[in-house]
Design a protein around this nucleic acid. Structure first.
Lengths: 188, 188, 188, 188
DNA sequence: CATGAATGAGACTTCATTCAT
DNA sequence: AATGAATGAAGTCTCATTCAT
């Protein structure tokens, strides 16, 4: 039941937004009553917190696996991380969209925990960049933090337009982003 | 008065979000009464619509000026557009953040008008890319639409983290994004 | 101007009702502003009061003319009064409908003045009936006050359905009501 | 609770009118809160609709019973219908008064349903008249539709003045209306 | 586990009215 | 004679939440 509530909520939050979705909307969709909701969740914000925690933890876990793979060089790790982010549009689309849009609605008490993990994801990527620069694999004249924000922006933004069922494939997007980032648009 | 209402609203919408900001919040901040608000705006949504229209129209206008400058090549136009987007964080920050976050709250009737202009901005950039490819100035093996989304994502995302008063300067960001995009991270 | 305001208000009150018609509605319809309204009327209720006074005074005046015609017998006076009431649907339709429907919205201070005149109209008809009974022209086994209410009800109700432009003519209605009232529906 | 809300509302609507009665007025009177009201009714208009439906359905039901009684001739049916209408002033006074006065405030979507039933009541009476004419029981030189409006007007109007606790009894009113209608005021 | 009834705070909005100009 | 700006009270409605059952 708890899982089903999360699933339906995700759907509704994605479509209508967190503030615009009422508990009533959620339970109506499931054919139960509000009491049921409050049996499983302390509050609406708690539900949102759960959604955020699940998403960012999963993302962090996947990223960590790539980070820990010592056989990959910086290029391959960047490609891996871009790949995770883009592919999760198909596998975790609603979660991701809700994550990016509704962060503001978390309790001030719960927020830091999420922010911390979100920043960890960023620092991880930044570490990859920095290591690449140190090893001479990447050019050293650009600031790693800005680069990191740039790559994440490119990827995260795709949640707002990329449709895995549409004309461009996941692979197209990943390839384009990685090529752009590593080799640039100018011909060699 | 109308201008002052917009200004304060922008501030509040940015901080607390559209749905979470009440008309009461807005008028309290200004020392007037709710009646005054409704004298100038038909509804809360109408105010949001005004904000969106102002922002996207201004952006489109600035972009068009760059597009029409026939002396610039693709590289320079890309740099110009990135520059506009990043610089307007300082000059139009609240407008821009509200624009990206609250689009969903527009009336279904008003939405298309805004979407159309937003898409126009995108198509304009895509045109620059396509022209660059056609003239041989840019490599031709990547899809222009995905490239466009990538660049816009990078830039638009910076609204969510970039602080013009912080350690990284506007110029740093612009330079990094343009270099990454055009030449890539790999050393030559 | 005052006359034009009354005219438009009457139209709107009839269609939408008094409470549902705002001063704004009225002045919009005329292309002026609210200030203008308040220049001519102390308040919305004052306007309603004016409308009521005009209508009932006019009606009373017409009725009085018939009452004072000493050449007419009871039958003819009844017919005359029914005739006035039905004919004024065409000539004073909106006034009449507003009069019957919106009486409740008058100030408690103004109400008695109107009620008094309205009752005078009723007493006048009742007097005709009583005189008719006394003179033997009308049967004496029914209560004059109830008869009066019956005749007035029949006539006043026609404001809610009778359309002078429709299939039944004014004369049809008057004839039917008078015949019913005087001779009844049973064949002789 | 739903029943009690309807009852109190009826009371208030009758006294102050629909538009002038606020939800606050209703719930204050009952010692509950606004939320309670909206738990039972979707909107204020929905409550009004419920009131209208209940009244007109009940009336139609009672009338139908008389219509279906094949042992009664036209005269008796007319008397029966007048009787229902007048007697329901005592039994359903507030409902009836609200019904006649506030029809205009129904939703445009709900209105037709009510209008249809109201017209059915009228057509039923008209049928009685027509049958009476066809069988020779009633005179044939007057239009049945106008007669019908006349009788209904007489009866319905009495909601606005007749007080069952007052000097005139229900039976007085019924007798007077039926006698007037059938035999007329002239002595035989 | 789940329901249904009730709460109460707060949201958006309308509108008659006032007043300086 | 008329306007435009502003008020403030009141209105309808929503909704997260609680609690007895």
């Amino acid at each position: 039941m708890k899982g089903k509530i999360i699933e339906k909520s995700l759907q509704l939050f994605e479509t209508k937004g967190f503030s615009e979705t009422s508990i009533q909307d959620i339970v109506d969709e499931m054919g139960v009553t509000k009491g049921t909701f409050y049996y499983y969740f302390k509050s609406k914000k708690q539900l949102l917190m759960d959604i955020h925690t699940m998403y960012i933890s999963e993302l962090l876990k996947m990223q960590t696996e790539i980070m820990n793979n010592s056989e990959k060089d910086a290029k391959e790790k960047i490609k891996g991380i871009v790949s995770i982010l883009v592919k999760s549009i198909r596998t975790h689309g609603p979660s991701a969209r809700v994550f990016f849009r509704e962060l503001r609605h978390l309790d001030e008490k719960s927020l830091p925990e999420i922010i911390e993990k979100r920043d960890k994801v960023r620092y991880n990527l930044q570490k990859v960049i920095e290591d690449g620069i140190d090893s001479g694999e990447l050019r050293s004249d650009l600031k790693p933090d800005i680069i990191t924000f740039g790559i994440l922006g490119m990827c995260n933004w795709s949640y707002s337009w990329f449709n895995p069922e549409g004309p461009a494939s996941e692979e197209d997007v990943i390839l384009t982003y990685v090529e752009m980032t590593l080799k640039g648009l100018l011909p060699y």
